Amino acid sequence: GSASAYVPFARAEAYGSSKAAIHYLMKTLQISLVPQDISVSLVVPGFVETPMTKQNDFPMPFIQTPKQASQAIRDGIA
């Protein structure tokens, strides 16, 4: 997912909408899969340094390296 599902960003209408859809899907799957004893995790990492974010021309608070994001995701799931 992405934090853009929670906070609207100008010029990111399609991106934010797609992330909101992922958020909704994951939340409904969390409910629907309880009877099968299946857990569903939603990861919302914020900004991660990638070729895509290198093209951004706006501030990206708390941007993380892929290594930092990966460790935080693994810690959160554990």
Rank of each mutant, 00 (worst) to 15 (best):
G1M: 08
S2K: 07
A3F: 03
Y6V: 07
V7Q: 01
V7I: 09
V7N: 09
V7W: 00
P8Q: 13
F9D: 10
F9H: 05
A10E: 15
A10L: 13
R11P: 08
R11G: 07
R11K: 15
A14C: 02
Y15Q: 04
G16F: 04
S17N: 03
S17F: 04
S17Q: 00
S18Q: 00
S18T: 09
S18M: 01
K19T: 05
A20G: 05
A20V: 01
A20K: 00
A21Q: 00
A21I: 00
I22T: 02
I22Y: 08
I22V: 14
H23K: 03
H23A: 08
H23M: 03
H23I: 01
H23G: 04
Y24C: 02
Y24P: 01
M26V: 14
M26P: 06
M26T: 13
T28Y: 14
T28F: 14
L29I: 10
L29T: 09
L29M: 15
Q30S: 13
Q30C: 14
I31A: 10
I31W: 11
S32Y: 04
L33I: 12
V34C: 04
V34P: 00
V34I: 15
V34A: 11
P35R: 06
P35W: 02
Q36I: 03
Q36E: 08
Q36F: 06
D37F: 05
I38E: 07
I38N: 03
S39P: 04
S39F: 14
V40P: 12
S41I: 14
V44Y: 00
G46K: 05
G46T: 07
E49L: 08
T50M: 07
T50S: 05
T50E: 08
P51K: 10
M52G: 02
T53W: 06
K54G: 02
K54H: 14
K54N: 12
K54Q: 14
K54R: 15
Q55D: 11
Q55E: 15
N56T: 10
D57W: 03
F58M: 15
F58P: 12
F58K: 09
M60V: 02
M60Y: 05
M60N: 00
M60F: 07
F62L: 10
I63Q: 11
I63M: 12
Q64M: 08
T65W: 09
T65K: 11
T65P: 11
T65C: 12
Q68E: 13
Q68N: 06
S70T: 13
S70K: 01
Q71M: 13
Q71T: 11
Q71N: 14
A72I: 09
A72G: 08
A72K: 13
I73C: 13
R74G: 01
D75R: 15
D75N: 07
D75I: 07
G76D: 04
